[in-house]
């Protein structure tokens, strides 16, 4: 077990140093923070709401921001290994493929969590202006980190499918957009009449939007944890299956 952990951590360290060696990481952080700030204060109407809460003004935008930025962070994970042929090198090292898969996931996820942590001024702001429910803020942050993780896992999977980063980006974007839309109220309201309640509630239960909603409201439910955990786990497992195909072909 300790050897597995060491292998995973070695891969994670390499990915992180690769990320911060280029300006991309810093550009990403700046865009992420500016975009979230803009959405929160202008479209989210943070001040106009007059509420000491972050759920509708701040967390509301997280799925949309992640939709744009997480595929951009994760698209290179395997596509670049395949393009540079380093996949052959990495997978002939004495490590199990899942060590590399988890190590890469962990590095990008830690980076996304760092970006998320850097939004702390908004918490200070809302704390100074009123007396917010810190429990729901914490659960919102937990949900947001899990949401980022599941989008990242989707991107890691699409990245393993191609040697072209752009194709991986587009595939991830489409899948993640679908995961948001199938629980997004304007969409579900639209199809409820034609398709019926059972189908819509089934569809909604597959949606990241729906499961993130509970976290925003301050509810940490086991079912929502299970949902994000299983989306992430399923995608990482499928990545290993895809990679096995790449090696055989």
């Amino acid at each position: 077990m300790s050897e597995s952990f060491r292998n995973i951590w070695t891969v994670t360290k390499r990915e992180l140093s690769g990320l911060f060696a280029s300006p991309v990481a810093y550009v990403f952080l700046v865009i992420f923070l500016l975009l979230l700030g803009f959405l929160t204060f202008s479209l989210g109407g943070f001040f106009e709401r007059g509420q000491a809460s972050l759920s509708e003004s701040f967390f509301y935008w997280h799925p949309w921001v992640y939709l744009l930025l997480v595929p951009a962070v994760g698209m290179r994970l395997w596509a670049e290994e395949r393009r540079q042929n380093t996949l052959e090198l990495l997978l002939t090292m004495p490590i199990a493929p899942w060590h590399a898969i988890v190590g890469k996931f962990l590095a990008s996820w830690l980076f996304l969590v760092l970006a998320l942590v850097l939004t702390f001024p908004i918490v200070i702001t809302v704390g100074r202006l009123g007396s917010p429910d810190y429990g729901s803020i914490i659960s919102g942050y937990i949900g947001s980190a899990l949401l980022a993780g599941s989008f990242l896992a989707v991107t890691e999977l699409t990245s393993a499918m191609t040697r072209n980063q752009i194709i991986s980006l587009i595939m991830a974007l489409v899948v993640c957009f679908g995961l948001i839309l199938c629980g997004f109220e304007p969409v579900t309201n639209l199809i409820q009449d034609t398709l019926g309640d059972t189908f819509v509630s089934l569809l909604r239960s597959l949606s990241t939007w729906y499961h993130f909603d509970a976290f925003k409201r301050g509810v940490v439910d086991f079912r929502d944890l299970l949902y994000f955990g299983s989306v992430t786990g399923f995608c990482l497992f499928t990545t290993s299956v895809v990679l096995r195909g790449v090696r055989g072909a």
């Binding site: 140093s17 690769g18 060696a21 280029s22 540079q84 042929n85 380093t86 090198l89 002939t92």
Partner: peptide, 10 residues
């Protein structure tokens, strides 16, 4: 390996 790959960003 045949193409002697290495990580170009390192």
């Amino acid at each position: 390996p045949e193409s002697a790959p290495s990580y170009s960003d390192m």
